[in-house]
Design a protein around this nucleic acid. Structure first.
Length: 909
RNA sequence: GGGCGCAUAGCUCAGUUGGUUAGAGCGUCUCUCUUACACAGAGAAGGUCAGGGGUUCGAGUCCCUUUGCGCCCA
């Protein structure tokens, strides 16, 4: 017999790395049914998740532990169910973010990327990736992620680059990719175009500038115009008014003079103009405003670009050429004031477009870029969700998804960056033709000339991310992985990237594979600080998950994130919560320690092992005590609830219920009763069996939530049970590790549960009532109290449970009697009424008759209220219309209240 | 402007087919180092479930509406 000397507190620091290594070395992260292996069975349906790839050189923030915990939970659950599972890990090259990091490092050496050139810059960025690229995946391992690292991918690796190239060429050949000058969002600091999604609008205080648009050839007549961006006057090509606006109708078709520049532009009529806003007349700058651009298109207006790629005024701006956009605004306005064209300025709240990255003000401008013609893709993507091929959880996000796709605009996919997938198009200097090819061409496809040059731009990072679920499995090749694991099962990610990523994956998946890339989209909320504020460095409320794990352990962090969240809802996190769950991990550990020591203490002295196995599979019978039956019934109830909750993605609620069961039912009650049962020879073995079985199943249920502590403890349990001559039969089917132990399958009730549960609940109530009395009367916990119980119909139950009641309530066994009926009320005793049971506690010298009387009266009166309420309820329509079971339950409650009230009345005499 | 979410104990939150007198963690108060755990145990206090209206035998839960906060889209 081996003695188990487990540390008094769970030591996550030494456990976590060791356990993770054991899993990884044991090959448990690989699918149990693998198309790359000979015994592969294509008929088994796998469960597959592709990881939302984190930025390869990024830092771990709380968003990562959240998605890792969620996905790992789903993966572990399915793995334990025996389903072949694959979780594909990987990282994203994160074009802008990574390039900026390296540029920043370069700047410290006083260099710019232009100075060192494209090739050298790319070499450095790859060095950077090699140096820092492993950090994030190491951190994800630390979170316990059970993904198949053998299948790890990177968006810029060879295979994925080929996928990107294939995707681009196919869209190009289909005419769904085009290049052209369009109004795009330009980021002057980064000097690249960005997509509509990468622009965020923020409300900021600004001004509305009113000025005069003088009419050409009509002395002194003018149209008053208001604008938030006076500098764009330099690019105006019209003034628009509403066709029915009485004020300005007469000017339609006339010309007005652009201030300072003196150009003449037409006055046009367009229904877009809002007569209520500003002066009701709108200056039109098609080159620098999306709405104006559309109006310009409608009216065939010329488009002027008055800002260059650095947001400085171009020659279009005449005297202002070379000025920065903001300096120009001031100078022009002052000049206009001097020219008598200014009317007034008003404070006004602007909606300023800012770059999602860096926050600089984005400039709408005309630029030659590549676009994806999105409408046909969007249509298919809408259909896939509408007809249920893809389900979004929570459902309300389907509406958001529809709304976005229904109003989607073409996607600008070219970026003026160097880090990314280069656009596979070559321009011919001889014939001007474009050559788009899967492999780098040497000759122009049109004229055969050698004078071709590749487009310098790269693709939006999300273009490659959109291919992720299938590119990671080998697409465009028909690899065995792709055949078997695609489409994937669940896409789990934050709702903040529903458009950026999820919608695009759906569009691309349908386009290139003909299938929805996943069946279910599960969207989680965002993690905020304990008061619901967004975490930000400037605010100083950022919680670093690494520090949290250092202090409280990974399981505590995971459990906090999993249990603290509801689908699609933001969650607030605080260290306090993590600490509470660290305590839970410790609770698991210690309850386990107790069970293991109980097993170790059970030897085979005088016991014939074979004969002492439970003969019946029907539980709650024969050699089972009430507590054994109760905890088993509760556990089975829990297994059923957890199964139901998992099916509906309510992982948080499932975790809470397991927590409740483990701490309140198992540790607080059953373990305490078990201590007693183990002292008796006849119940000892059955108790240890129950302890072992309940712990085993509990650990299995908890494993997806808190994998480390459960794996470690289960290992000890397995060894202890396996080495025990009497109990080893219990573990005969247990595998090497908990990670692959079978998930507890829900089984139907057997019929005995309700009765046993009610009986145990009565015992609990009696114990609580006595404990309460002790606390109220300030009786020392060490003092054993005498007691007289009057049980009526429950006398047999009380007699059988008397040792339990005595032990848990601190009664003195020698002075503790049970009666069916009692002729006279004991003297000098305090009486507690618990349902059908009376508990008389003689407390010499502590009984104040008046106090007792008023206590009983108070109890009686609150009972009367309940009785009246129920009598009224049962006399109403309720009795006819409510389901019989509900009515029956209320009737029983009323009976029990009446019984208690009668007893109280008798006491009061 | 359109859409969505939230409002439940001092704080942070659960509460998904509507069904006991609404739960948890933290915090507060009282007691206890009882041989798994003081990262603990026992007990207690604390809520007109934002306001109003409706449906129903029955509403924290469903419908309408008002107010406040937050988010997304334009």
């Amino acid at each position: 017999m081996t003695e188990y000397q487990l540390p008094k507190a769970y030591d996550f620091k030494s456990t976590e790395p060791r356990v993770y290594e054991m899993w990884e070395k044991g090959g448990y992260f690989q699918p149990s049914n693998d198309p790359r292996k000979p015994d592969f069975d294509p008929a088994k349906k796998p469960f597959v998740i592709s990881i939302p790839p984190p930025n390869v050189t990024g830092e771990l923030h709380l968003g990562h532990p959240l998605f890792v915990s969620m996905e790992d939970l789903m993966i572990r659950y399915h793995r334990m169910k025996g389903i072949p599972t694959l979780w594909v890990p990987g990282t994203d090259h994160a074009g802008i973010a990574t390039q900026l990091q390296v540029e920043k490092a370069l700047a410290k050496e006083g260099l710019s990327r232009e100075q060192i050139g494209r090739d050298e810059f790319l070499r450095r960025i790859w060095d950077w990736k090699e140096k820092y690229g492993g950090i994030i995946t190491t951190q994800i391992r630390r979170l316990g992620a059970s993904c198949d690292w053998k299948r790890e991918r990177f968006t810029l690796d060879e295979g994925l680059s080929r996928a990107v190239r294939e995707a681009f060429v196919r869209l190009y050949e289909k005419g769904l990719i085009y290049r052209g000058p369009r109004l795009i969002n330009w980021s002057p600091g980064l000097k690249t175009a960005v997509s509509d999604l990468e622009v965020e609008y923020s409300e900021e205080p600004g001004k509305l500038y009113y000025f005069k648009y003088m009419l050409a050839g009509m002395k002194g007549e003018y149209i008053p115009v208001a604008t938030t961006r006076p500098e764009t006057i330099l690019g105006d090509t019209a003034v628009a008014v509403h066709p029915e606006d009485e004020r300005y109708k007469k000017f339609i078709g006339k010309k007005v003079i652009v201030p300072i520049l003196g150009r003449e532009v037409p006055v046009i009529a367009d229904e877009y103009v809002d007569r209520e806003f500003g002066t009701g007349a709108l200056k039109i700058t098609p080159g620098h405003d999306p709405n104006d651009y559309e109006i310009g298109q409608r009216h065939g207006l010329p488009v002027l670009s008055m800002l260059d790629r650095e947001a400085k005024v171009t020659e279009v701006g005449g005297p202002y050429a070379g000025l920065d956009r903001f300096a120009c605004r001031e100078k022009l306005w002052e000049d206009m004031r001097a020219a008598g064209l200014v009317i007034k300025e008003e404070p006004y709240t602007l909606n300023v477009p800012r770059s999602q990255r860096g926050g600089e003000i984005v400039e709408p401008m005309i630029s030659e870029q590549w676009f994806v013609k999105i409408e046909p893709l969007a249509k298919a993507a809408l259909e896939a969700v509408r007809d249920g091929r893809i389900k979004i959880v929570p459902e309300r996000f389907e509406k958001v998804y529809f709304n976005w796709l229904e109003n989607i605009r073409d996607w600008c996919i070219s970026r003026q960056l160097w880090w990314g997938h280069r656009i596979p198009v070559w321009y011919c200097a001889d014939c001007g033709g474009q050559t788009c090819a899967r492999t780098d061409p040497l000759l122009c496809a049109h004229c055969g000339g050698k004078n071709i040059q590749q487009d310098p731009d790269v693709l939006d990072t999300w273009f490659s991310s959109g291919l992720w679920p299938f590119s990671t499995l080998g697409w465009p090749d028909k690899t065995p992985d792709l055949e078997y694991f695609y489409p994937t099962t669940v896409m789990e990610t934050g709702y903040d990237i529903l458009f950026f990523w999820v919608a695009r994956m759906i569009m691309m998946g349908l386009e290139f594979t003909g299938e929805a890339p996943f069946h279910t989209v599960y969207l989680h909320g965002l993690v905020r600080d304990e008061h619901g504020r967004k975490m930000s460095k400037s605010y100083g409320n950022v919680i670093d998950p690494l520090l949290v794990m250092d202090e409280y352990g990974t399981d505590a962090l995971r459990f906090t994130l999993l249990v603290g969240s509801t689908p699609g809802q933001d969650m607030n996190i605080s260290e306090k919560k993590v600490e509470a769950n660290r305590n839970f991990a410790n609770k698991i550990w210690n309850a386990g320690r107790f069970v293991i020591s109980a097993i170790a203490s059970l030897d085979d002295r005088g016991l014939q092992t074979a004969d002492h196995r439970p003969s019946s599979t029907l539980h709650g019978q024969s050699d089972w005590t009430l507590a054994d039956s109760w905890i088993w019934a509760r556990l089975q109830q829990l297994v059923r609830a957890v199964e139901r909750l998992f099916q509906s993605y309510q992982f948080g609620e499932a975790g809470r219920q397991i927590y409740e069961f483990f701490w309140s039912d198992f540790a607080d009650w059953y373990v305490e009763v078990a201590k007693l049962q183990m002292q008796k020879e006849e119940t000892r073995q059955q108790t240890v069996v129950t302890l072992a079985r309940v712990l085993d199943i509990s650990l299995r249920l908890l494993h997806p939530f808190t994998p480390f502590v459960t794996e470690e403890l289960w290992g000890h349990l397995r060894r202890a049970v396996g080495q025990n001559a009497i109990l080893s039969y219990l573990a005969k089917d247990w595998p090497q590790a908990l990670i692959i132990a079978p998930w507890p399958e829900p089984r139907p009730e057997e019929g005995w549960e309700a009765g046993k549960t009610a009986d145990f609940a009565l015992v609990q109530e009696i114990v609580r009532a006595i404990r309460n009395l002790r606390a109220e009367k300030k009786v020392s916990p060490a003092k054993r109290l005498p007691a007289i119980l009057v049980g009526g119909a429950k006398t047999n139950l009380l007699a059988e449970q008397s040792p339990v009641i005595a032990a848990l309530a601190g009664l003195a066994p020698a002075q503790f009697t049970i009666h069916r009926l009692l002729a006279a009320k004991p003297e000098n005793a305090i009486t507690l009424v618990v349902g059908p049971v009376e508990v008389h506690v003689p407390l010499a010298g502590m009984v104040n008759l008046d106090e007792e009387r008023s206590r009983l009266e108070k109890e009686l009166s609150s009972l009367q209220v309940q009785i009246e309420r129920l009598e009224k309820l049962l006399a109403s329509d309720f009795a006819d219309k409510a389901p019989p079971a509900v009515v029956q339950r209320e009737r029983e409650r009323l009976d029990s209240f009446r019984e208690t009230a009668e007893k109280l009345k008798a006491q009061l005499g």
